[in-house]
Amino acid sequence: MPDDVILETKGLTKEFKGFVAVQNVSLSVRRGSIHALIGPNGAGKTTCFNLLSHFLEPTRGQILYNGREITGLSPAGIARMGLVRSFQISAVFPHLTVLDNVRIALQRKRGGSFDFWRAGGVLDELNAKARELIESVGLAELESAAAVELPYGRKRALEIATTLALDPEMMLLDEPTAGMAQQDVERISALIKKAAVSRTVLMVEHNLSVVEHLSDRITVLQRGEILAEGDYKTVSANPEVIQAYLGAGHG
């Protein structure tokens, strides 16, 4: 079903005092696709992203996930529904080991996390699955290192492993390759591609070659509004998009 929509927004608007960051954005993301949200600086991408992940509350508009309105739910609540976000600054638990980072996510699916009287050993049953995930992002030899000691690109890989541990139906990625060296960009792109095989991905991304390489569909935002939408070819040929990006150093 190519037109099966997993996430939809209707008239999504966010106003800060005297300033409209996101205006009347109606977006639909198809199930199983990689959808990119791009735009010049200050276009409202991150605000839009925070609205979708419920870290901000919209001034107006609706968000529908699998046809169900999720607009007022808590961020933790939508995460439990299978809509899991990442962060622009790598989001790891710095002083926990790589293994423990992934286990925290697996533990949430396992349940029983209020059991303060139980020994931590009950969580060892999660180790095999955690190691499998760590291995899949190429961190196998680093499982007992503290996350804070990992280089930046590896932290992002760990973050992806942690997100995948939740087996989310849909992933929201906030600039997954921001601030990365080229070889890391390739590694992370490959990981996203692999993760997206059985799920939907919506990402905000600056790196246009990553966008071109990964995304099935692109939405361009400018000054809080949708400027254009389509696949990379259509969007990159759009004169308004070229205009918006001129001077920003991108093609």
């Binding site: 423990d100 925290i104 996390s113 139980r118």
Partner: peptide, 19 residues
Amino acid sequence: SPFGQVLKAIRENEQRAIS
């Protein structure tokens, strides 16, 4: 305990624990 693990995660990065 399993609870303690979550508590440490919240101490380390509350936003991530929420997400």
